[in-house]
């Protein structure tokens, strides 16, 4: 993915700032990458190169670590991240139906981001809320006992909030 000059500069600056908190021992690599992702939302190639320099290892090894773990993303996420739980209990109670509903509503496939970068859709192995299955997360909020109509409702409420923000509601 092509980044703008500004985005690239930001990625380098922010990465350097975070990396400075770690001494060069390799145990700090994953926590540092996690922090970079917290700040930037993803781990761009620039950050990986910076990390490689800081920890004194080949950049390809950093890439190896980033791609090994599911948590790291290589592309910018949507402003709202939708994660659908695909654990055992959720699966048995129709997690795939919830996933399809999101795919239909957002018009993207799992793992993709909407063209306006508003939503990204992901699957997650298990969030440990099996008693509330099926479960979906919008950003950090867990929504239990999901139904296809609840998906429509959540999407609609986000659209509404956006619209209100655009119109500058006085509330």
């Amino acid at each position: 993915m092509q980044l703008t000059e500004e985005e690239r500069k930001e990625a380098v600056e922010k990465s350097r700032e975070i990396l400075a908190r770690y001494d060069g021992s390799r145990g700090g690599l994953i926590p540092a990458l996690q922090q970079i992702q917290d700040v930037l939302g993803y781990v761009p190639a620039e950050a990986m190169r910076e990390a490689a320099g800081h920890f004194g290892m080949p950049a390809v090894d950093v890439y190896g670590v980033v791609t090994f773990y599911n948590q790291f993303r290589l592309t910018p996420p949507g402003r709202h991240q939708v994660k659908v739980c695909m654990g055992t209990a959720c699966h048995m109670k129709g997690g795939n139906i919830i996933m399809e509903s999101w795919e239909r509503v957002l018009k993207v496939k799992v793992g993709e981001t909407t063209p306006d970068r508003e939503f990204s859709l992901e699957r997650v192995a298990c969030v440990g809320c099996c008693t509330m299955a099926p479960v979906a997360l919008v950003n950090e909020t867990v929504h239990g006992k999901m139904t296809p109509t609840k998906v429509d409702g959540l999407y609609f409420s986000h659209q509404l909030a956006n619209q209100q923000k655009k119109e500058g509601m006085p509330e």
Binding site: R26, G27, G28, L29, I30, V65, F68, Y69, N70
Partner: peptide
């Protein structure tokens, strides 16, 4: 606290250690 990064295999103790050492688990 060390936060995992979403790899199931890291529940295995030697993989867990590898991941804490900054390597793929």
């Amino acid at each position: 606290v060390f936060q995992g990064s979403g790899a199931f295999v890291c529940g295995e103790e030697t993989a867990l250690i590898a991941s804490m050492e900054g390597k793929p688990g």
